[in-house]
Simulated assay, not measured.
Amino acid sequence: MSSTKFILGVFDDPDEMMHGIDKLQKNSIPIYDVYTPMPIHGIDAKLGIKDSRLGYAAFMFGCMGGTTIFTLVYYFLVHDWPMNIGGKNYFAIPDFIPVTFEWTVLFASFGMAFTFFFATHLFPGRAPRVMDLRATNDKFVIAIDAKGNVPHEDIDSILKEAGAVEVKHNDRKYVSYE
């Protein structure tokens, strides 16, 4: 049995890579992932990647931040230390809109950053998971899980027909920078 875990098709041109994705999908070969040095319009829909739910997390963190500061301000100015200044109410809501807005933005931004790092496993100090280091510079890489039932020679020929400049067989899941 082969020790190959992934078959990598390396492309020079994003249009050829998109053509390669079409050919692989036409032959019912599942694509593990695609690595590109820049965003490519339409690749998410072609690969069937769902929209991110990060916006929902931002909304929830923003609500938490706004509620937190509004509760703290109410407690401090009405219960803990009420001050009568010029006969105004103890808790004048328009005066606290700016600080509430700032805390809402603060909680939403930090919450989104932490949620993104948690969801993608991009913690500080962790080595990035990349199939081929050239995908971060100037190459476009299609990774195919080699454990499927399609013969490797057929996948190699499909990738070469689509315009791959190189087809590699990886025996490791990721390449390290060391």
Rank of each mutant, 00 (worst) to 15 (best):
S2Y: 09
S3V: 04
S3H: 11
V10Y: 04
V10W: 02
V10A: 08
D13N: 15
D13L: 06
D13E: 15
M17W: 07
H19R: 14
D22M: 09
Y32R: 10
H41K: 07
I43H: 00
K50T: 14
R53F: 15
G55A: 11
Y56A: 08
F59A: 13
G62M: 14
G62E: 06
C63H: 02
C63F: 13
G65I: 01
G66K: 12
T68H: 02
L72Q: 04
F76M: 14
M83S: 06
G86I: 04
K88R: 14
K88Q: 09
N89F: 07
F96I: 01
T100L: 00
F101V: 09
V105E: 03
A108E: 01
M112E: 02
F116W: 08
F116I: 10
F116R: 01
F117C: 03
F117P: 02
A119Q: 09
F123L: 15
P128Q: 09
P128A: 10
V130P: 00
D132F: 15
D138H: 15
K139S: 12
I144E: 08
A146S: 11
V150G: 01
P151D: 01
H152C: 07
D154L: 10
I155A: 06
I155V: 13
D156C: 12
I158H: 07
A162G: 05
V165D: 07
E166T: 03
V167H: 12
K168H: 13
S176C: 10
Y177K: 11
